[in-house]
């Protein structure tokens, strides 16, 4: 009976994962391996192709899905889909404004900055998706509300980093619901510190992808990451630990069934949580550096909330 409960939990989390993260690993890998027929992604590999691909970057709609999605139904990659800048966050231009009227240098620099703002908008939307996924974890919404906030504050960038892995290979990453493939070399060619932002995620993702997890494994792992009882400032740790223990049992059982030949996969996966924390710490420091050094820097209010006093 206990195993049946654990299987039911993994099924529930997988269903929620598919519901809240429409670009699954299965879909992303199909796109990356060219198995989607004639709909191959637009490749951005230099500033010109970035300008040419602006319209796609701006697209908020998932190709092939409902033509009139509700505002709440948006896709799931931690990439570049421009949202609507929130009050106090706009003013520097969304991608839709275009580079008209700038010198060539200004054009490319403006483009870089707009690209960064698009990433922020998309990240904010992705935070909302992760929040909905977290709320679907049995018992999560019964936790102290302040602890729910803390778990999200500390866990969400780790989850977003994990969500990027299926979209990446050693050469680049999918963005905009899989409509764009941006090359790693192009991202490395951006000016500092922008060029430093995604490279650690590529390094992590290439290694992480060798574990060959599927979406059902990832759903459980994301829940484990969210339910970390050692986040700073938690008021009531014990119920969080109890929830995490249950999901951990479910994950362990699921990996044994789903990957019977993969030795120590459960242990290897848990070790990734240490790498994730370092990646997030470095990421936060980069954003804080940007905030100090970039004259026109403006952080999205939701990301400001998350990043404030975080590490």
């Amino acid at each position: 009976p206990e195993a049946a409960d654990l299987r039911a939990l993994s099924r529930l989390l997988y269903d929620s994962y598919v519901k809240h993260f429409p670009l699954t690993k299965a879909k992303a890998r199909a796109i990356l391996s060219g198995k989607t027929g004639d709909s191959s992604p637009f490749i951005i590999h230099d500033m010109k192709s970035l300008m040419d691909g602006e319209q796609l970057i701006n697209c908020k709609q998932i190709p092939g899905r409902d033509q009139h999605p509700s505002p709440a139904v948006l896709a799931d990659n931690y990439g570049v889909v421009a949202g609507h800048p929130a009050p106090g966050y706009g003013g520097l231009g969304g991608l839709s404004q275009g580079p008209i009227g700038l010198s060539h240098q200004g054009r490319t620099e403006g483009l870089e900055l707009r690209f960064f703002y698009s990433c922020q908008s998309r990240s904010a939307e992705a935070v909302r998706e992760v929040t909905e996924f977290a709320k679907s974890i049995p018992g999560f919404v019964d936790l102290d509300l302040n602890d729910q906030v803390t778990l999200l504050k500390y866990g969400v960038i780790e989850v977003l980093t994990l969500r990027m892995a299926p979209l990446m290979n050693k050469d680049g990453t999918l963005m905009s619901y899989g409509q764009i493939f941006m090359t790693r070399e192009f991202l490395k060619s951006l000016r500092k510190p922008f060029c430093q932002m995604l490279e650690p995620k590529f390094e992590f993702s290439v290694k992480f992808n060798t574990l060959e997890l599927d979406d059902s494994d990832l759903a459980l792992f994301l829940a484990v990451v969210i339910l970390s009882g050692d986040r700073p400032g938690l008021l009531n740790v014990r119920p969080i630990e109890r929830l995490q223990e249950t999901v951990l049992h479910s994950l362990e059982l699921h990996l044994k069934v789903n990957h019977p030949d993969s030795m120590q996969l459960f242990a290897k996966l848990l070790q990734k949580m240490t790498d994730l924390r370092q990646i997030v710490t470095d990421h936060v420091h980069l954003i804080q550096l940007l905030d100090k050094t970039e004259v026109d820097m403006c952080l999205h209010p939701l990301l400001q909330e998350i990043l404030k006093d975080l590490y």
Partner: peptide
């Protein structure tokens, strides 16, 4: 609570599109 106003909103409103 004020420090994490949007996160609170996201957690408490399941469907309303928070102003992102």
């Amino acid at each position: 609570k004020e420090k994490h106003k949007i996160l609170h909103q996201l957690l408490q409103n399941s469907t309303s599109p928070v102003d992102l």
